[in-house]
């Protein structure tokens, strides 16, 4: 490994932080209700839900595609507020809504370009031209399920792994 790469890795490592206080709501469209759901989303957030593996910033949240007609709404948590209740009201009849704030741990990696950690470690082509800002992938790494998305504003990347695997995933990140 070249000195350059070692330096880059050290820099990345210090830049990977857990996002401690986020509220995450999982939204899944009811059968045949996508159009109505998107109308409601436009009215509430000013955007439609992405139908492909994309993430977008809207209304103070990041909306992350999470499977066919499913999304995660990620927003800052504030004490005593359960945003999933509001979302359930907003999308009532159009989507099923579940609070999954504690299901995953979200790691943020503040780098502008894909790094060795990303490029080499997952079965996804992370090169700049292939995995663009706002792109999302649900995949696995080292036998752990992960979601990864490139922040829509290009500031970096976020990974989400199941909460009970956090320690293992962290140690996997730390081996670099």
């Amino acid at each position: 490994m070249s000195d350059l790469a070692n330096g880059l890795r050290a820099e990345q490592h210090s830049a990977i932080v857990e996002r401690p206080d986020v509220a995450v709501t999982h939204i899944s469209a009811r059968r045949g209700m996508l159009a109505g759901l998107n109308d409601a989303a436009r009215a509430a957030f000013g955007v439609e839900f992405p139908l492909t593996p994309r993430a977008l910033d809207a209304h103070g949240m990041t909306i992350v595609w999470a499977g066919p007609e499913q999304w995660l709404l990620i927003e800052p948590a504030s004490k005593g507020v359960d945003p999933s209740l509001q979302h359930a009201k907003t999308f009532s009849g159009f989507a099923s809504v579940v609070d999954v704030s504690d299901s995953r741990t979200i790691f943020q990696m503040a780098i502008s370009r894909p790094s060795d950690v990303l490029v080499q470690s997952m079965g996804i082509d992370f090169e700049d031209t292939s995995f663009k800002p706002g792109d999302v992938a649900i995949t696995h790494v080292s036998h752990l399920g992960v979601m990864v998305w490139r922040l829509p504003d290009g500031r970096g990347y976020e990974f989400a792994c199941a909460r009970t695997y956090t320690k293992d995933f962290r140690s996997w990140l730390d081996r670099f």
């Binding site: 899944s28 989507a95 579940v98 609070d99 299901s103 909460r163």
Partner: peptide, 10 residues
């Protein structure tokens, strides 16, 4: 009309 959410870790 069924939606499934795995929430084992929640």
């Amino acid at each position: 009309d069924v939606q499934l959410f795995p929430v084992s870790d929640q």
